[in-house]
């Protein structure tokens, strides 16, 4: 696991106006909490933070002046377009502490079922795992070449190192190959005709007679 280094500064005041000014200066407001200590307000470099998030970093090394410490990224808030981070929550952790994190699942290979016209549906894209801070896997790669039509990959089939615990139910489905949708052109036409026949929705709380009366007038 690679640990990204992020430059930061301490900040004394919070509030939306101060934070807005920080964001204009290329900084991201952040808070450090945990281990029963008082929360600290800091700001991080936007560029470093975006790079760390893009590389799915869970742990970062925060460098403030000459001090450098490791923290767990607990939460990241994004703007309405989900483009830029607007706030980061960092948590104090010990290297020997067990933490709960989400790890992305990467499916490798082309399933046999897909060659027969099936559709691959990736149900669980991130796995909740519990492990030591410095042993968080970057991603979980699973080969799915063997999956045929209607076959599913379950959580219990995923192999992970012994010190990494999966927090999902063993029977949860990770990915499934759905058979091709077999609706013929005639069936689709029939559905469309039925939908067009119902040109107006039913009004809740009104009987058909009252509804017809309500529509009178020019």
């Amino acid at each position: 696991m690679e640990i990204a280094t992020i430059k930061g500064e301490t900040r004394k005041t919070g509030g939306k106006h101060t934070n807005k000014r920080l964001r204009h200066r290329g900084q991201v407001p952040a808070v450090i909490y945990g281990h029963g200590q008082e929360p600290e307000l800091v700001s991080l470099s936007l560029h470093d933070t975006v790079l760390a998030i893009e590389h799915t970093a869970h742990v970062i090394s925060l460098k403030i002046e000459s001090q450098e410490r490791q923290y767990l990224i607990k939460d990241v808030q994004f703007d309405h377009l989900q483009k830029d981070p607007i706030h980061v929550d960092l948590m104090r952790v010990d290297p020997n502490e067990r933490v709960q994190v989400k790890v992305p699942i990467e499916l490798r290979g082309t399933p046999i079922g897909q060659a027969h016209g099936g559709n691959l549906v990736h149900v669980i894209t991130e796995l909740d795992v519990e492990c030591l801070l410095l042993q968080i896997p970057d991603d979980i790669r699973i080969r799915i070449d063997h999956l045929g039509l209607n076959d599913a990959l379950h959580v219990k089939e995923i192999e992970l190192p012994s010190n990494v615990n999966i927090l999902h139910e063993p029977d949860d489905i990770v990915a499934v190959i759905h058979p091709p949708r077999g609706a013929t052109a005639a069936e689709i036409e029939a559905i469309h005709e039925a939908a067009e026949a119902a040109a107006e929705p039913e009004v809740i709380g009104k009987g058909p007679k009252e509804d017809a009366e309500g529509e009178g007038g020019e």
Partner: peptide, 13 residues
């Protein structure tokens, strides 16, 4: 084209 609209509504307009 399929008529894409709610099945039931509380108010028509």
């Amino acid at each position: 084209m399929a008529a894409n609209m709610p099945k039931r509504v509380k108010y028509r307009k």
